[in-house]
Write a protein that binds this DNA or RNA. Structure first.
Lengths: 134, 134
DNA sequence: CCTTGACCTTCCAGTTACTGGAAGGATTAA
DNA sequence: TTAATCCTTCCAGTAACTGGAAGGTCAAGG
């Protein structure tokens, strides 16, 4: 099948699929006219990558996972290690964002948000502490 | 002061500070020898940007915030609007990451992580459901 | 006076994972 | 034959830096 059909089947932009070929992630055969020809196995790989990407795996992780996917003699430990690393990264990101959110909230909450210039947010960013140092 | 001193004072890489000039975020005067000359006001701006960036504001938001910082007639409402938008984005990101984490966890947990090839993570990514469809 | 080392300059390229668009060939239907 | 789709490749842009090369400037030491 041509790239358009593969794209539609998977709900991926053709541009993205071409990109995956460019970086040698999913490389289809070519028809005589030069068109990319995707077979069922290619489409499975596209689906695999699509799901891995949607779970936040990097394209590089996808490359490794894809090779494990294709390897009938893989050790599930290898897969699990990648996934656990990624999980740890996600947890770290969540923690970081929660901290950001809380800090930001403490600046935003006391801001009156009116027409006057006094602004705890600006003060906070400028490094001015609100407390009146006696 | 030269860029090196400003960089050290703020704990920012000189490269980053040059970049901020390139994008016209913090543009210092120049000495006769062509060196960048940062005065106290520039350093304050660098600090302001540094803090805003560390709170996750985009460089573009920083530009706007910086102009509000310098505007004695600003309305705090304008500042607050930007900060609240950003807060909303952060919340959305946290929610998204939590979903990712949970989904990933449900794939990782049942994986034995041994030398055998059977792997619920690979199966999940491949779109194979675990349940034995009777 | 000259050299060495630290500091400064500009410019170019690379990072991540695409996305948009231009120019032009292939295919299909009318 | 022509028009509408589809396909191709190639180039550029996104965000926010970061690394590195080639070369100018400056202060200290011999």
């Amino acid at each position: 099948m041509n790239i358009g059909e593969a794209a539609e089947q998977r709900g991926l932009p053709a541009k993205t699929i071409r990109y995956y070929e460019e970086i040698k992630l999913v490389v289809p055969a070519r028809s005589e006219n030069g068109y990319r020809a995707y077979d069922g196995r290619d489409v499975n790989k596209l689906q695999f990558v699509q799901r891995a990407r949607s779970l936040g795996f990097s394209v590089d992780d996808c490359r490794t996972l894809l090779s494990l996917y294709e390897d009938k003699h893989r050790a599930s430990a290898d897969v699990k290690a990648i996934a656990e690393d990624h999980l740890t990264e996600i947890e770290a990101k969540i923690t970081e964002l929660r901290t950001l959110r809380d800090t930001l909230k403490h600046l935003v909450d006391p801001c009156l948000g009116d027409a006057r210039p006094e602004c705890p947010i600006i003060d906070g960013l400028a490094g001015r502490t609100k407390g009146g140092g006696k």
